[in-house]
Every structure is written in structure tokens, then in C-alpha cells.
Design a protein around this nucleic acid. Sequence first.
DNA 1: AGTGGCTCCTGAGCGC
DNA 2: TGCGCTCAGGAGCCAC
Length: 273
Amino acid sequence: MPELPEVESIRLTLAKNTLGKKILDAEVFWPPAAVSLPGMEFGELVKDRTIDFINRRGKYLLINLSGDITLIVHFRMTGRLIYYLGKQPVDKHTHVVLHLDEGELHYSDIRKFGRMQLVPTKKASEISFLAKLGPEPLDEAFAFDKLGQQLAGKKCTIKAALLDQRVIAGLGNIYADEALFRAGIYPGRKTDSLKVSEIILLCNSIQDVLNEGIKAKGTSFRDYRDAEGNKGMFQEKLMVYGRAGQECKGCGGILAKEKIAGRTTVYCPNCQK
DNA sequence: AGTGGCTCCTGAGCGC
DNA sequence: TGCGCTCAGGAGCCAC
């Protein structure tokens, strides 16, 4: 599932292949996946626009098109955006194809949770789901004091807080569990029970695990691929996610599984307190 | 404010 | 081989 490092990897590979290219036309096979401006047809709105630059905010990919239109993509669970230099057949999960002046861009999504949405670029930051997002964990301005502010006064579990995109943008189940393991914090701890020393540790762990995830080009636990169709490598480095019942790579104890914040959570009862 | 449940979806895995 | 069941989950929404 694309979290921050996966979306960043898609951004980099997509930029490498499509910047400056022009959209000749679009084919929409499943309309709910392609949200346009009111009263405008998706294909008509993207036609003849150039891909100017590509940004990322949390787990959202922001593709700036010429003429002040931005294509916002959220991949949710199984969304993929892949560039093909040649002609590529569509399959039953392909929802949108953008034909470029060189190559084509396929948006597909097995579970159909993901969305592409066109918005006026000037209004992009006001779009409700973007405006609500918390700080970017890899911004230079982000440090333990910022994380502390975001967590202040919260009484939920730390796992729930890390998954809350209003608190911090870009973490999902994989990197939240991995960051908590590295910080030695039990995911079910109440947020207001964390000491400053633990918040410092957690902040560093979040940044480290995200940076290492990006360096490894993301985690391909199951479905994830970058914009060139390649898998990431970070699944080989996972300490807890997907490893319930296996040995902890730190202490050799058995990793536990528990539903916390409504999500399957894996942790080491020995290493995380 | 926090929590739990439901919804959107499909495929994988399992028991029989 | 195949049926039916459960599980996976990001995030919005609603009830309590």
C-alpha cells in the first residue's frame, strides 16, 4: 500500500519519464476513479496539457499540468500509476489511460479505493483533504518539538495518532509499526503517557524509517510498483510488519499481533514498552 | 475527544 | 476443483 516512501518513489520515477510530455487524450474505463471539475469531462480537461512538474504531499501525488490544472492522485491500497514507452494493453483493473505524445500512462487499481481528481492548481491547497494534512515528516522544519506539539493533548493510542493524517502526513500501517518498533514504544501506549525522550526517539525513528524506505524505493509487500513497474526493496528490511509469530530481529523473542486503532499491529512485547 | 463499526472493493488463503 | 468464509486495509462518515 503506497505510503510516503512509495508515493515519493512513484513521484521520482514518474518525473523521470513524463516531465514535459503532453497529454494527447485520455480513456476512462471506470469513471468513479477519475473525478473532474463539475460539469467538465475528465478527458476533455486534461487534453493538450503538458506535465509541468510533480509534487507530493503526504500520500498524495500532485501532478501539475499546464494551464493551472493539477491532477491529484491517492493510491489508497492497490493503486498504480505506470508509464509505458510503447503501447500497452489494458486489463480489467485499468481505469484510466493517458496517451502522451511519447508513451502512455496507465492508472490501475484492483480494489478501486484510489482516486484521481482534477482541481485548479491555485485552489489545490484549499482542497479539504489536503488542507487538513499535518506536517511533512521529512521537511527540514520537522523535528521532535513539532511532533510533540502535534501529539500534545491527545489521549488516543500512539498508533492511532501516527495513522491520523492530520497529526502527521504520510504514515500508514507499515511505517507506523516500523517506527514504533525502532523507538521501542508499544503501539497501544496512550499518547499523553510518552516522555519527551520517547518523542525524540520516535521522531528520529519516523524520519529514519521513511528515509530508508525511500532509499530502498519503497516496500512491495504485495501490490506496490513504482511508475516504471518496478518493486521496492524495503520489505526485506521490515522488522515487524507482516512478521507476527516470527522471531524479533532484535531480541529473538516472538513478535505479537494485536488490533490497535482498528488495524492489525505487530510489535515485540520485549523490545517495545 | 475518542472509539468502534460500516462502507467502498477484490483477491488470497484456508477448511472442507 | 470449487465453494463459502475470513481477512487485508486508507479514510470518510456516523453513532455513541
